[in-house]
Amino acid sequence: MRVDLFDFELPNELIALRPAVPRDAARMLVLRGPHETIDGGVRDLPDLLAPGDVLVFNDTRVIPAQLEGRRGDARIGATLHKRIDLRRWQAFVRNGKRLREGDAIDFGGSVSATAQKRFPDGSWVLAFAGDEPVEVLLEHAGRMPLPPYIAGKRPTDERDRADYQTMFADKDGAVAAPTAALHFTPELMEDLATRGILTETLTLHVGAGTFLPVKAEDTEDHAMHAEWGRIDAETADRLNAVRAHGGRVIAVGTTSLRLLESAAEEDRIIRPFEGDTSIFITPGYRFRAIDGLMTNFHLPKSTLFMLVSALMGRERMQAAYAHAIAERYRFYSYGDSSLLLP
């Protein structure tokens, strides 16, 4: 499909620079079936789901993956993207043309790395010095990797260390937050449990590639970035049991959805999964694992807007986004939410 079919105009003032306070005070646009559209709020979620449904959260934890350093007189910026092993990460590098294989980069705070290999997309393998896990080093020298549509408008600050982390964050490794879950609070979780709505977690370490623009003119020519994820056997069994008893599997965020769909086959059974996924979901895809999605509002011509268009229909989503813009919903990572129930 042509990528420009997924374009729309978004006023800059609708890009949220801070999350709602409290988190569950955000608005939520509800699309139910082919026609029903409801303007609601995240706090309405318990009444919009049924007892026996299950919400699936991503328990990845965002690491302070942005680094500023020097190679001699050259300033080098790095955003870690994907772990290779204990000491090495793939990174998107600003001013990377100033690097050569074997160059040492000093990031301050006793953190340094060697540029080992350059990939065709311009990213580098960085090998960090020392014996500690890289995540420990980042606590000394790194900053939270806010997406460019926020970081380009204001500097990262200490508040973002908490704001850009979900209440489910447990396993280090993401360089972007699974932002749909930023709306949840202990109080909302208690209300969901009282309603009889179940919860499960999986792990997908979100990479910086999630913010890369689609440069191809046709979706067939786009190469999707890979991310590491895991669903254990016990979680898969419980999710399958929910569906066997008539409940719905509702993914909280496109990261949860992509991993669930990677773990399911044509028989719609979710299986244990561990490894990389580069699944790219566009209209025409037949969903196997999920029955609904809670997600924020996405960028035009992005793989994520293509994904929600696959779930609800492209024309339906274009109309929904036009409605959200007219009603002044807040967009992107710190913005409002939507609940999509085909």
Rank of each mutant, 00 (worst) to 15 (best):
S338I: 10
I270G: 08
L202T: 07
D106I: 00
P11F: 11
R83S: 02
M1V: 05
F128K: 01
A251T: 05
M189C: 13
L31F: 11
L5C: 10
G292S: 07
S337Y: 03
D121H: 10
G207C: 04
L299S: 10
A216C: 00
G122N: 13
N12P: 14
L67F: 00
A226T: 05
V21I: 11
M224I: 09
L17W: 12
L299A: 06
S123L: 01
P147C: 06
T114E: 11
F8E: 07
D39Q: 11
S262L: 02
H245I: 08
I290S: 09
D121S: 09
A113H: 10
E266C: 06
L204G: 10
P283N: 04
G142Q: 03
L14I: 00
H298L: 02
M312I: 12
A223P: 13
R258H: 01
L192W: 07
K117M: 12
L257M: 08
E265Q: 13
M167E: 10
F280Y: 09
L80D: 15
K97T: 15
T277R: 13
A289I: 06
P155V: 06
P51N: 03
A176T: 07
D336M: 13
L67V: 00
V3M: 09
A141Y: 04
Y285V: 10
A322M: 15
V249L: 08
T179C: 06
L192I: 04
I84A: 04
E13H: 00
R75V: 14
S112N: 14
A113L: 02
T37Q: 14
A320R: 09
P147H: 10
R258Q: 00
L198T: 05
F184A: 11
M224C: 14
I231P: 02
I325C: 02
R243D: 00
T60K: 00
A141V: 05
A16G: 09
V214Q: 03
P133Q: 11
Y164R: 10
L204K: 06
Y321D: 03
E227P: 13
A65F: 02
L55N: 00
D39A: 15
W228I: 14
A233V: 11
V30L: 01
M312N: 12
I270M: 04
M317C: 01
V30C: 01
L341W: 03
S123Q: 04
A236L: 02
Y285D: 10
S262N: 02
S309L: 11
H205F: 05
T295H: 02
F287L: 12
R286S: 10
L304M: 05
E266P: 04
L99Y: 04
T295V: 00
A141W: 07
D59Y: 08
P22R: 14
E101S: 13
A25S: 08
Q90L: 09
E274C: 10
A264H: 11
E190T: 14
L146V: 03
E261Y: 09
V111C: 01
K215M: 04
T37L: 15
N240C: 00
R271P: 08
R238L: 08
L31W: 12
V214T: 03
A127P: 07
H298Q: 06
I105F: 12
D7M: 07
A26C: 07
P186G: 09
D53N: 00
D172I: 15
M312V: 13
L239D: 09
N58Y: 01
P46Y: 06
S112D: 11
A263E: 12
A233P: 15
F6Q: 12
F8V: 12
